[in-house]
């Protein structure tokens, strides 16, 4: 479990970035963090793998205070994939890019080999093994980044804006992938502006504004609260607007198929 207790964070120059954060993220859950630009979402998640340490309060992972561990130690269990793939790709081949983390953590040769084979198949990267990751397209680069982090099998995975620049097919793959991780007892945390994607993902949503957590809840609960959305700079997904517009005030259908069913029934009456 990830636990934030009365956490606040100030930048080195004294400006305040996080305030009064109390948050529990249970194991094996999917959590999304949403909020306007500059709300402190990235600052928040950087506390989970120790890139930032709270100014006051404590952050603990499985009851271990992050202040007592280095980023490298924490990262073994917390994988973080950043928004910009170009900020991490550096190796001469995709193979070496993926091996980078595995080697840094000093795993056994056997484990490294096994994990490498696993992710290279999972992300369909076999044909690029010996190519420079820099030569790949944007979507492929993102896949390499994911593979390179997932390689060491962290229990917690943090994705910062994973859908930016991704087309519909890639988004669907990502969605299935997050589901798969969740089924394998992983904790997934996503920062995203992509409301339509979040509706399909159906995570626990944490809304933030000006360095504070405003509300936590299900997509249905969050996206129906107009005042809240205004405050945190989001708009509801189209599915919510449509069903609200035709008079269905709760239990919005989750999928396209269900939506069709509901509308057809409505018409038959």
């Amino acid at each position: 479990m990830i636990k934030f207790e009365d956490v606040s964070y100030n930048h080195p120059d004294g400006t305040n970035a996080l305030n009064d954060i109390n948050l529990e993220i249970p194991e094996n859950s999917i959590t999304a963090i949403v909020g306007n630009n500059g709300a402190g979402k990235t600052t928040l998640v950087k506390h989970i793998n120790g890139l930032l340490k709270p100014t006051t309060g404590t952050v603990s992972i499985k009851n271990n205070n992050t202040k007592e561990s280095s980023v490298a130690e924490l990262s073994r269990d917390v994988g973080m994939v950043f928004q910009n793939a170009n900020h991490q790709l550096f190796a001469d081949t995709v193979e070496n890019e993926i091996l980078f983390g595995l080697n840094n953590f000093g795993f056994s040769e056997e484990f490294i080999k096994e994990r490498y084979e696993f992710v290279i198949e999972l992300f369909n990267l076999r044909k690029y093994e010996n190519i420079s990751p820099l030569k790949l397209s944007g979507g492929e680069k993102k896949r390499v980044c994911l593979a390179s982090v997932l390689a060491w099998n962290p229990g917690i995975l943090i994705l910062d804006e994973p859908t930016v620049g991704q087309d519909e097919l890639q988004k669907t793959v990502l969605l299935e992938f997050i589901d798969q991780l969740n089924k394998n007892n992983k904790t997934v945390i996503v920062i995203s502006h992509d409301i339509e994607f979040l509706w399909r993902l159906q995570p626990n949503i944490v809304t933030m504004s000006e360095g504070r957590i405003i509300q936590i809840g299900s997509p249905e609960k969050i996206f129906r609260n107009k005042e809240l959305m205004e405050k945190v700079g989001i708009v509801p997904p189209q599915i919510i607007k449509i069903f609200e517009g035709i008079g269905i005030k709760d239990k919005t259908p989750l999928s396209l198929e269900d939506s069709c069913k509901v509308i057809r029934e409505l018409r038959n009456h």
């Binding site: 950087k46 793998n49 890139l51 280095s70 980023v71 490298a72 990262s75 073994r76 917390v78 994988g79 973080m80 950043f82 910009n84 900020h87 991490q88 550096f90 980078f100 983390g101 840094n104 953590f105 390179s148 982090v149 060491w152």
Partner: peptide, 12 residues
């Protein structure tokens, strides 16, 4: 940001 990304991949 690059340092953050690489530290998160175990770079000491």
């Amino acid at each position: 940001q690059i340092m953050d990304a690489q530290k998160s991949r175990g770079l000491e």
